[in-house]
Design a protein around this nucleic acid. Sequence first.
DNA 1: TAGGCCATCTGGTCCT
DNA 2: AGGACCAGATGGCCTA
Length: 392
Amino acid sequence: MDATQLTELMGSHDFMQLQHQLHHNNNNYNTDGHNGLSSESAEGSSRPVRRATRRTSQLSNNTYDLEMTDSSSQSDDTSGGGGSSNGGGSATNTGHPSGGSLGGQGPSSRGRVQQTSLGVCSSTIAPNSASSNSSNANGNANRRRKGALNAKERNMRRLESNERERMRMHSLNDAFQSLREVIPHVEMERRLSKIETLTLAKNYIINLTHIILSKRNEEAAALELNSGAVGGVLLSSLASESGGPVASGIPTNSSATTLCFENALANGGAFDCALLAATDGSLLNAATVTASPAMQSIQSQAIHLQTPMEQQQQQASHLSHHQQAIHGHGHLGASMSVQTQQQPTLILNGNTSVGMGVGIGVGVEVGVGVGNNAPNFADINDNFDEPFREFL
DNA sequence: TAGGCCATCTGGTCCT
DNA sequence: AGGACCAGATGGCCTA
């Protein structure tokens, strides 16, 4: 459908059909009745499928003043402007059975009505009921007539803009979902929220970076040792610390854990290892770790960067910063996740617990559950991003 | 019922 | 000029 046809639809007041056409003008736009989570639903997202089809409902119930008889809808290019740029609320939501703040009966004093009173454009897409605002209509008759010529075009552009915005947000959500699928995390009844996803991703990257840096430090230390330098000091220090709990009181069995997990990834077997702590210091019981082929590949790459000595070194240098301990009992399966029998705890940056689990950091010692003060690796290495520059 | 999360609308701003 | 991006506002859904 081209712009002319869209305009014709506008003129016919058939916005349901218009919306329908707008939807189908873009093949990427999901019009199957889901609300933007369809891909997640289809992929077995851990977050329950939303039963509402709000998107469809909204679009199919929109009622616009196509002739722009509402004066408020003509003010976008004539008002003095100023004030907030945020319209607040969706005028098109008036189609919802219980929603809608416009039409003179709105439950809220905010949004379009308020903005109109401030002389700010209320909306270029106004509900039909808004045309009852006779005072505004009388006072802006000339302007209305003047703007009427472009009303349909503005409406169409607004709808197209809305459509683009939806598309943009959908692509953003797709990216979030892709990120969820590659970030190891505890499988919950619900999927990871966006903030959780970002936080886990950040911590995951930080820890992978640390692994690489540790590897390099290890190599450097080995070189020094071979040359008879100070390497012995490092080794003795590690040896003394690896025998017992670290300062945080958490057993340092991550070496065995990692080896165990690595072996599981490599051989497809089960493993039972402990690592990472909940924020309260309690162990997460019987976490089941499973890894997808893709994650196995990823994790294997990460794992093989870290030797037991490196892990000890890492623990010695960072466990005081990371509360780590997860009791994992895992096996390889369909997706990388950790299933816990109790509500695990997600350790967010800054000691924030949001009551969800942290997964795979678990056996691979990458510690997704980085707790307080996400390690300031910049302090350790000024070239924090150096290991990844090749990917830029 | 409150709070969290989300989708959507919306207009301003920035960029090409 | 038009599109992308952004952020405020709103209402729906879900859970504790």
